[in-house]
């Protein structure tokens, strides 16, 4: 079969027209949908207000947590109920919050999200996680934990971990490291955030992991997280890690010491002012300044002539803070062309 040029031209014309028609029809559908949705939103406002009122009453009433007589709530669309519950959840604390979570469990408002967690579409699973995150009941937390441990997509597991961190239900750091495959996967700021969120609850475990050679790859994250524990008991561990062969770990130890603001860390922080790695020296300079380590002044003065712009600059800032009466001239730091 031989195609003539004119046949191809006709094909192009027909294809263009068909494509345009399909797109126009699709646009019309979207326009109508948008219009109807806007109308529906306006129409549903009184109902949403009624649902909110009933919900507040149920939470604050004698039988708190019992939605019982709430015709508007029970008649409302599941999406409206979910919106109302998540809205009120942001405003209540303590017993009221517990009562509201009971209502959420009773009325199965997040059942659709639980189902979505097991569906194929990755973005849909993440959307479901975000719904569950807003209603951190026991059932939804279990579902998020299961997702964090078993979902085939790393992105979804990470999303589950951040949702659990936000609700204060993140598992132990060893489990986090295992579930998120942190011994092999690239490390990001989110991983750092996860360990930080565990710091207060799992200080001892973080300390143990940081000392364990099995976790040497993420040691800097673990050491950095120790600074968020608020526990001065980790200072000895930080001092040990300040002599780690990996400069990232030494930096993390300094950052943690800075965060804890315990003057006892100044001694070894001053020692790191002479570290061969610029990044470590910079952290040491900042830590000395934060800990008000006046003994560091002689070394800091020598760092003003460092070859690194950053070391010079931070040393100047530290000296200006430690001895404000004798400010360092900016041009001495040799920065301006």
């Amino acid at each position: 079969m031989i195609f003539h040029i004119s046949d191809l031209a006709m094909l192009v014309i027909a294809g263009s027209v068909a494509f345009a028609l399909v797109m126009v029809v699709q646009m019309i559908v979207l326009l109508v949908r948008r219009y109807l949705q806007e109308r529906r939103v306006i129409a549903s406002r009184p109902q949403e207000l009624a649902v909110l009122r009933e919900l507040m009453k149920a939470v604050a009433g004698a039988g708190a947590g019992d939605i019982g007589e709430a015709p508007a709530f029970l008649a409302a669309d599941p999406a409206v109920r979910l919106r109302a519950i998540t809205h009120v959840l942001q405003m209540v604390r303590g017993a009221d919050r517990e009562a509201l979570l009971r209502i959420a469990d009773q009325t199965h408002v997040y059942d659709a999200a639980l189902k979505d967690l097991n569906r194929g579409d990755r973005s849909r699973r993440v959307d479901a996680l975000r719904v569950l995150e807003q209603i951190p009941s026991a059932a939804s937390t279990d579902a998020m934990l299961a997702t964090m441990g078993n979902d085939p997509s790393h992105d979804v597991r990470l999303e589950a971990a951040t949702a659990l961190a936000r609700t204060g239900n993140l598992p132990k750091p060893t489990a986090v490291a295992r579930m998120l495959e942190l011994r092999t996967r690239p490390l990001t700021r989110l991983h750092e955030a996860l360990f930080r969120s565990s710091a207060v609850k799992h200080t001892a475990e973080l300390e143990r992991m940081a000392a364990d050679e099995k976790y040497v790859r993420i040691r800097h994250l673990l050491v950095e997280a120790l600074g968020w524990s608020g526990d001065f008991g980790v200072l000895d561990a930080l001092e040990r890690h300040s002599s780690d062969p990996n400069p990232e770990v030494r930096c993390a130890a300094l950052k943690s010491a800075r965060r804890l603001e315990h003057p006892g860390a100044a001694r070894w922080a001053i020692g790191l002012l002479l570290d061969p790695v610029d990044a470590v020296r910079i952290q040491a300079v900042q830590t000395c300044a934060k800990l008000n380590a006046r003994d560091a002044v002689p070394i800091l003065s020598s760092l003003i002539s460092s070859s690194s712009w950053w070391v010079r600059t931070r040393a100047k800032e530290a000296l200006d803070k430690l001895r404000p009466e004798q400010r360092v001239r900016a041009d001495i730091t040799g920065l301006r062309l």
């Binding site: 800097h220 990996n246 930096c251 990044a279």
Partner: peptide, 17 residues
């Protein structure tokens, strides 16, 4: 130097290697 040796990850200047 910062590009050669360090990444600047914090407002306090470069802090990771």
């Amino acid at each position: 130097v910062e590009e050669a040796d360090i990444n600047t990850d914090s407002e306090d200047g470069p802090d990771t290697v």
